[in-house]
Amino acid sequence: MTIEVNGVEITHHAINIESAHHKRPDLDPREAQEQAALALTLRELLRQRALQLDLEVPEDDSDDQALDAVIDRLIELEVDIPQADEATCRRWFEQNPDHFRTPDLAEVRHILVAGHPEDLEEREQARQTAEGLIRQLQADPAAFPALATAHSRCPSSEQGGLLGQVSRGETVPEFEDAVLRLPVGLAPQPIKTRYGFHVVEVLQRIPGTALPFEAVHERIAEYLEAVSRQRALNQYLRLLVGEADIKGIQLDGDTTPLTQ
């Protein structure tokens, strides 16, 4: 893959080097190459525009930091990024109340009966054991700490199964999704996760509370300005693409995601 931007060549070798910065576990090598080609094309467009404005573009193409500084200056000069005033921030706050709450909490204790997800026989045995433990606890709730110490394969077994307060992002999603919906008390069915089956008792629920605007004003402003910057930069890059002679890569100014 060789690309030309207004007669300036971007070599296959350069794209290969750049692709190392775009590799992710969920991205195959071809997609990484495409993203690298796009990034270098846009970078070259910005470099050329900086030259047109007589900015001090480094002669050494490998001086990425110096070129980044020039591109930042170019964007500062040519891209109008609207600022998020207080009224805009307050309107966003009022339209998105669920974004600005303290997290829901559940104080929980559990017994993890381990079962490997690929061992169907072990998983079934774990499920049956967990259901048996629930029946024992329904008859004798005070037995929870002793049963956790004897059966749980979680380090919390040393504290009688006590996990403390659980909120989103602290355990595996499938556990949180179930626990944060449960009422206070012993769950009548075990919770299945990638680790096995959990016997769960919710000791206390602490619902999240709404945060005041003053506590999140700065965070909202940063978010809205980042969105505005991305939108304005995309529009600017589409303009440069539309005016340029680009060969070797297909850029559709209306649909191509020009920035990553």
Rank of each mutant, 00 (worst) to 15 (best):
Gln52Pro: 07
Ile220Val: 13
Leu105Gly: 11
Gln204His: 14
Glu174Gly: 03
Ser19Val: 01
Glu18Asn: 00
Asp119Ile: 08
Leu186Asn: 03
Ile206Thr: 15
Val57Met: 06
Glu158Gln: 15
Gly248Cys: 04
Gln189Cys: 04
Phe213Arg: 07
Leu233Arg: 08
Glu158Thr: 11
Glu121Gln: 14
Ala106Leu: 10
Leu40Ala: 01
Pro183Asn: 08
Leu237Trp: 11
Met1His: 13
Glu59Trp: 09
Leu40Pro: 01
Arg181Cys: 08
Leu46Tyr: 05
Arg47Tyr: 10
Glu44Ile: 03
Pro97Trp: 04
Pro212Val: 14
Ser157Pro: 04
Arg24Leu: 04
Leu162His: 11
Leu211Cys: 04
Gln128Asp: 07
Val200Ala: 02
Arg91Cys: 06
Ala187Glu: 11
Glu124Thr: 13
Arg24Asn: 04
Gln235His: 15
Arg30Val: 13
Ala14Gln: 14
Glu4Thr: 15
Asp72Glu: 13
Ala87Phe: 07
Ala226Met: 10
Asn234Gly: 14
Ile75Met: 14
Leu55Lys: 06
Pro117Cys: 03
Arg47Thr: 13
Glu118Tyr: 10
Pro25Trp: 05
Arg153Thr: 02
Leu74Glu: 10
His151Trp: 13
Ala146Tyr: 00
Gln65Ala: 15
Pro173Gln: 08
Pro103His: 01
Gly169Phe: 06
Lys192Ser: 13
Glu86Asn: 11
Val70Pro: 08
Asp177His: 11
Val79Phe: 01
His151Thr: 02
Glu201Pro: 12
His21Asp: 13
Glu214Met: 11
Glu18Leu: 05
Gln260Tyr: 10
Gly253Asp: 07
Ala142Trp: 04
Leu133Thr: 00
Arg238Val: 06
Arg24Cys: 04
Val108Trp: 09
Ile220His: 12
Val199Ser: 01
Pro257Tyr: 02
Phe197Ala: 02
Ile10Pro: 00
Leu51Pro: 06
Ile71Ala: 09
Val184Asn: 11
Leu224Val: 07
Pro117Asn: 07
Val5Asp: 02
Ala37Lys: 10
Leu51Met: 12
Leu55Trp: 09
Arg101Glu: 09
Gly164Arg: 12
Ile75His: 08
Thr88Met: 13
Pro117Gln: 02
Ile15Ala: 01
Gly196Met: 01
Ala114Pro: 08
Tyr223Lys: 14
Leu251Ala: 04
Pro145Asp: 05
Arg43Ile: 06
Ala221Tyr: 10
Glu225Pro: 09
Leu211Arg: 07
His99Glu: 13
Arg90Ile: 03
Leu55Met: 15
Gly161Asn: 00
Ile10Lys: 02
Ile75Leu: 15
Pro155Glu: 04
Ile81Val: 15
Leu237Ser: 09
Ala114Cys: 05
Gln159Gly: 08
Leu51Thr: 09
Ile246Phe: 01
Thr255Ala: 12
